[in-house]
Simulated scan of single mutants.
Amino acid sequence: MVASAPAEMETNPSLLTADEGLYTELGRSGLRVSRLALGTVNFGGRVDEPQAHRLMDHALGRGLNFVDTANTYGWRVYKGHTEEVVGRWLRGSPTRRGQVVLATKVGDQMGGGPNDEGLSARNIVAACEASLRRLRTDWIDVYQMHHVDRRVGWDEIWQAMELLVAQGKVCYVGSSNFAGWNISSAQETARHRGFFGLVSEQCVYNLVTRHAELEVIPAARAHGVGVFAWSPLHGGLLSGVLHKLLHNSAVKSAQGRAVQALEVHRRAVTEYERLCADVGLDPAVVGMAWALAQPGLSGLVIGPRVESHVDGAITALGTRLPPHVLARLEELFPPVGRGGQAPDAWLS
């Protein structure tokens, strides 16, 4: 990372000491969450438990109160492992649970039985009980559907969620990886039932993958649903992958979607890293700062492995990219179609 930014680049990491800079209401709710959610997908297999606890301590100490996990995380060890790691951390302090907004997910396959996955009422309720045990808590702040289950109707899903809310085991319900019409369908059914419905959506969104601009983000805004972007650096592609590969320091950016995308976007990524060097900022900071500046985005889910990754995201939160940098980013990574939301994006 470059030590200092040019004078024209507005950076203010001290925003994290200002309430209005760090926190936002989650969708139309009154729940205040940090705009950086600590994602735990790397806990177990990439980050061991002591380091995971240090990361959560560091993030909470810097003001990040939003911790996001899922019942299947930790699969490199065994499914459910990450929730157990988070649960032991929560129990390590008598005040920690009250400081944290805790989110987890349901829907992915957890066992070999035919009812051990999906969004049936049975699995939603059973999976919630299992997550509560692993997390060592009495309630989940945001219980998220990990994916759409096209086999199950919304009345059944909301019946189960209403039960969990009435029992005090869940405060809010969120979604992840939904299409725009899934969000609208869910909300209309909830409205007819007199239920609050979705409070948040997590979707993949970054400079490379901008499909959410077409319908997901507009639908979420229309229904008062907060949006958090996961993989804001496209698996490390936007974190300075070429520089890291050159110096043999790539970890996550040397595998998965980042490697596949690099073959397609190498020219743009080369120019992107050159632009970041010109403005004196780490590429990861630029990528996250761009995402945080987009309309309708509540915040980012970050997946740090070391404390410096948390600090880099905090720097991004306090960085305002000037117009000429934003314009150049649009040239390098253009939006889908003509840009904007559907259907205007593809009208000739």
Rank of each mutant, 00 (worst) to 15 (best):
K244H: 12
L237K: 06
R54T: 10
V77D: 00
F228R: 03
Q109E: 11
I183W: 00
A18M: 09
L22N: 01
W290T: 04
A342N: 08
P323C: 02
A289M: 05
L233Q: 12
T72G: 03
T24L: 12
D138K: 00
A186K: 02
H58V: 10
M110C: 01
A268D: 02
S348P: 15
D282H: 13
H58E: 11
M161E: 11
A284P: 02
R134I: 12
D311N: 08
L164D: 06
V106T: 13
L119S: 04
A313S: 15
H211N: 12
L36Q: 09
N42R: 12
R150Q: 09
V285L: 08
V165S: 00
H234E: 10
V67C: 05
V269F: 01
V33D: 02
M9G: 05
S185D: 12
R191E: 11
F333D: 01
R32H: 10
G74D: 01
K105L: 11
V279C: 08
Y272E: 06
R35Y: 08
L36Y: 07
A250W: 09
R150T: 13
W139S: 15
L242S: 10
A220Q: 00
V279A: 01
A316D: 10
A250H: 08
R76A: 14
S200K: 01
S348A: 15
V259P: 00
R328A: 04
N65P: 04
V259W: 01
L300H: 05
A268F: 04
M288I: 07
W75A: 14
V100I: 15
Y73Q: 06
H147D: 11
E162R: 11
W158F: 12
E129Y: 09
A219S: 14
G194A: 06
G197A: 07
M9A: 11
G226I: 03
A261S: 15
E8M: 08
R62P: 01
G61H: 03
L38P: 03
A316H: 07
Q294N: 01
H192S: 13
L242R: 10
A254V: 08
D155H: 11
R257I: 15
A258H: 04
V152K: 03
D344H: 14
V152I: 15
T17H: 13
G61R: 05
E201R: 03
